[in-house]
């Protein structure tokens, strides 16, 4: 019986090693300590499995953007900037991705992100956000972003990872909401022009509107540490994760989970079951 347990533990560690080519490597002993601790509902920093670290959000931090935010979770530090761009298109109704996400892993966070090192991870985060935002329910102002049949507002949400301390996906989703809430979009007026075209002019100087962000999704990843389900993993805990599933939740005004919108699978779901 005992040998079996040791065998499982070893397999657990091997799996964990395979998963993370990203960050600092821990010794087997440390991994066992973290995993068995989590199974007993105790974590290294004194939290329980379902506890989050303190989240700090600051908005309006960068002057060159239309909306910005900085999110910190202990040693995770993200900077989010939103830039609005009025694009001329053939048919604005066909433009579905009006909120566009891009993630950049700054080498400041860890030398492993240097050059193209962080691209794969960055794409994963951007893709998760894209999936979470690509449905009718979460963006109530979707129609309003199309100014005319040939003009559409594109909101570029750019996320820079300045410090990597785990839970990037959570921080990114919170940062996106904070920055988009902070975003001022210019009021414009449309006027008919020749050949069925439309010209767009700024209405009153400095008049802006804000997005309705009440339904924007919050993404949480649930991680499997041994038999325990853990949220908000620190960097060391992430090294021991066997699998993780990300859930994006959208809330109604009453702050009750309305719908589970997208499940972004980082690993086979079956392994979590």
């Amino acid at each position: 019986m005992q040998t079996q347990a040791v065998e499982t533990e070893r397999r657990m560690i091997r799996d964990a090693e395979k998963e993370t080519d990203m960050e600092n490597r821990l010794s087997d002993g440390e991994k066992v300590f973290i995993i068995s601790g989590a199974e007993a509902d105790y974590r290294v920093d004194g939290r329980r499995c379902e506890d989050f670290r303190n989240i700090m959000v600051e908005s309006g931090v960068i002057d060159t953007t239309d909306g910005s935010a900085r999110v910190r979770f202990a040693t995770t530090d993200l900077l989010v900037g939103v830039k609005c761009e009025l694009q001329s298109v053939e048919n604005s109704a066909a433009v579905q991705d009006r909120i566009r996400f891009s993630v950049d892993c700054s080498a400041n966070a860890t030398p492993q992100f240097e050059g193209k090192g962080g691209n794969e991870f960055a794409d994963e985060i951007a893709c998760a956000l894209r999936t979470a935002y690509s449905n009718d329910y979460v963006v109530p102002d979707f129609e309003k972003l199309a100014v005319s049949p040939s003009h559409v507002w594109i909101l570029h949400v750019d996320i820079v990872i300045l410090q990597y301390g785990g839970s990037i996906i959570e921080a990114a989703s919170i940062g996106a909401i904070a920055a988009l809430t902070d975003t001022n979009i210019c009021e414009v007026e449309t006027k008919p022009a020749d050949e069925n075209r439309v010209t767009v002019e700024m209405s009153e100087m400095g008049k802006v509107w804000n997005l309705d962000t009440t339904r924007f999704p919050v993404i949480v990843s649930v991680n499997k540490l041994g038999k325990a389900n853990v949220v908000d993993c620190s960097l060391n805990e992430e090294t021991c994760i066997r699998s993780a599933v990300c859930f994006g939740f959208s809330f109604s005004n009453k702050m009750k989970p309305q719908n589970l919108y997208q499940v972004v699978q980082f690993d086979e779901l079956s392994r979590l079951m």
Binding site: I62, T64, T65, S68, L79, G81, V82, K83, E85, S102, D104, S106, A107, E114, G115, H156, D158, V160
Partner: peptide, 16 residues
Amino acid sequence: QYSVATFSGLERKNRP
């Protein structure tokens, strides 16, 4: 490594 955040300037950059 010198890298510029895409939102840092007046115009948005495509690549950092």
